[in-house]
């Protein structure tokens, strides 16, 4: 299987701090892969590189056969690399439905004039967009909240809305930054199923950053481990579980003792 997104020798420096050090990484087409590592390992920074928010000090990002390293973020997003945020970043004073529709911006074509005049083409497009947004909200399980302000949703629903909004970009790759943070074990279990549905029903490749080891081990086909900006291991869940470097750097502190 080919890879849809692939980062080659990425290094990111913030002043003196090397947040990501020569990390290469692949998201296989229609794969579900995870990025794990202790706090401050550079996982979110790596996401920010893939989505164009930060530019790497060195290295390249290839997506769907072309280089996107230097592209502006909105072009990368419109091209099909969607993400959610570790700290939820919804548009609070807009409704759930509108949040989703914002992410359709790049697909919609209506001009300023046709919007003001309310031309039939614009109305049709809006109607279709609204229906698509409703369908996405249903898909993530919060169809009832369509007309609620995002800031009034429960924490769990906000996390779901972030996913629905990202899906509205009609992405080929979905990057989820700690999507189960704040969920209880049952909700997390449901979430694992949900990630599979996204991949299977929509054919989207998924990269997760995740702290919950139960989720990571269940959902991932491959796992990459970062520690202090360095890639220290890569492999299947079984390989990662038994990798001594990983246990030392990461699992030893958390899951090894606790779970």
């Amino acid at each position: 299987m080919g890879s849809i997104l692939n980062a080659e020798h990425i290094t990111v420096e913030f002043g003196g701090l090397v947040a990501v050090n020569d990390v290469s990484f692949d998201i296989p087409e229609k794969g579900i892969v995870s990025l794990i590592g202790p706090n401050g390992a550079g996982k979110t920074t790596f996401f920010n590189i893939l989505t164009g928010l930060y530019k790497p000090t060195s290295g390249h990002v290839m997506y769907d056969g072309s280089e996107i390293t230097a592209l502006v973020p909105h072009k990368i997003a419109a091209g099909g690399v969607a993400r959610t945020f570790q700290n939820i970043r919804l548009f609070g004073s807009m409704t759930a439905e509108e949040n989703v529709m914002v992410a359709m911006h790049s697909h919609l074509k209506a001009s300023l004039a046709s919007t003001i005049l309310g031309l039939p083409s614009q109305r049709r497009e809006e109607k279709a967009a609204r229906e698509e947004a409703r369908a996405l909200l249903e898909f993530v399980g919060i169809g009832k909240t369509a007309t609620e302000f995002a800031r009034n949703l429960s924490y769990g629903d906000q996390r779901r809305l972030e996913v629905a909004r990202a899906l509205a970009l009609r992405p080929k790759v979905l990057l989820l930054d700690e999507p189960t943070a704040g969920m209880n074990p049952q909700e997390s279990a449901v979430f694992v199923e949900f990630v599979h549905r996204i991949r299977d029903e929509k054919g989207i490749s998924i990269l997760l950053i995740e702290h919950d080891m139960a989720v990571v081990m269940k959902v991932s086909e491959r796992i990459t481990v970062l520690d202090r900006g360095e890639k220290i291991a890569e492999g299947t869940p079984a390989e990662i579980k038994s990798n001594p470097r990983v246990i030392e750097a990461y699992l030893g502190k958390g899951v090894g003792a606790g779970h």
Partner: peptide
């Protein structure tokens, strides 16, 4: 009101709310 209800109005509000998130959702800032 017309602009507000359309694609552009949504993009404006999104930028007002969170510029970074808006750009990550494909809105050209």
């Amino acid at each position: 009101l017309r602009i507000r209800g359309g694609r552009l109005g949504r993009a404006w509000l999104a930028i007002r709310e969170d510029e970074l998130a808006a750009s990550m959702m494909g809105v050209p800032l």
